[in-house]
Write a protein that binds this DNA or RNA. Structure first.
Lengths: 123, 123
DNA sequence: TTTAGATATAAGTATATTCTTATATTAAAC
DNA sequence: GTTTAATATAAGAATATACTTATATCTAAA
């Protein structure tokens, strides 16, 4: 019924569907929206989101396993950043999301991982 | 912690997340990929997909309830078409998906709802 | 006005998802 | 080395999701 070519087209559809499923969670989608502007460390997300540290960690693991983010360990801290140069459909979705300034307008400060940029300033 | 503006930004994120969740199923995503090119009736999808008629119907209901497709009844048949003029992020995702020709290259024919265009011809 | 075809809804089930708490790992500081 | 902070993994629970079969609704035609 469906052979070679259609199968590969189906595989593409399935891969994109998996990626869309990852964008289909409000917490993960907000993480990605924040990651548009800069890398973030786990401890920052723990302060911003209303979920536990293991919850954050599990979300990032999912995103990493699908190569949507990459991680970089620096000392005790692990920083995540976007990894979507080769995924224009994901880029397009993120482009239409609000960024850090709008999302965190009323969020006071990040007090963990003492990096200088960690204070979220409302310009 | 998060007030007015941030709340509305959050609502936007939540809405997009719900939409992405709908694109996060391989069957629905393929339905949307097919709908890029023309409207399809339920009976056609029943022949193309490996799920039951109620399964198709439930997928379309979800897509319709989020205004991603619209339906039009003509006689016994119900035709669905895209309704995403105001949803550029969804447009962008669909733009990167294979179309009917590639997806159904090895699919013989649609034998239901006897509309003239129903035979899927491999050019 | 009965019958047949197309679609929708209801109810139930198996699986997936997203959290949680408890515990393990890793790296720095003492 | 021991302690402390940051992150990851494991296990389990509550809920959501995507199917199924059975049945209802709606339309056209006989």
């Amino acid at each position: 019924m469906k052979t070679e070519v259609a199968v590969s087209a189906m595989h593409h559809i399935e891969e994109v569907a998996e990626q869309m499923k990852l964008l289909g969670d409000k917490n993960r989608l907000m993480m990605l929206a924040l990651l548009k502007e800069r890398e973030w460390c786990v401890c920052e997300f723990v302060e911003i989101f209303d979920i536990s540290q293991p919850g954050i960690s599990q979300h990032m693991r999912k995103l990493k396993s699908h190569r949507i983010v990459k991680e970089e360990r620096r000392g005790q801290w692990v920083y995540y950043s976007l990894n979507i140069e080769d995924k224009p459909h994901i880029q397009a979705v993120l482009r239409h999301l609000p960024g850090r300034e709008e999302l965190l307008r009323n969020f006071d400060k990040i007090v963990c991982c003492n990096q200088s940029e960690s204070a979220i300033s409302a310009p």
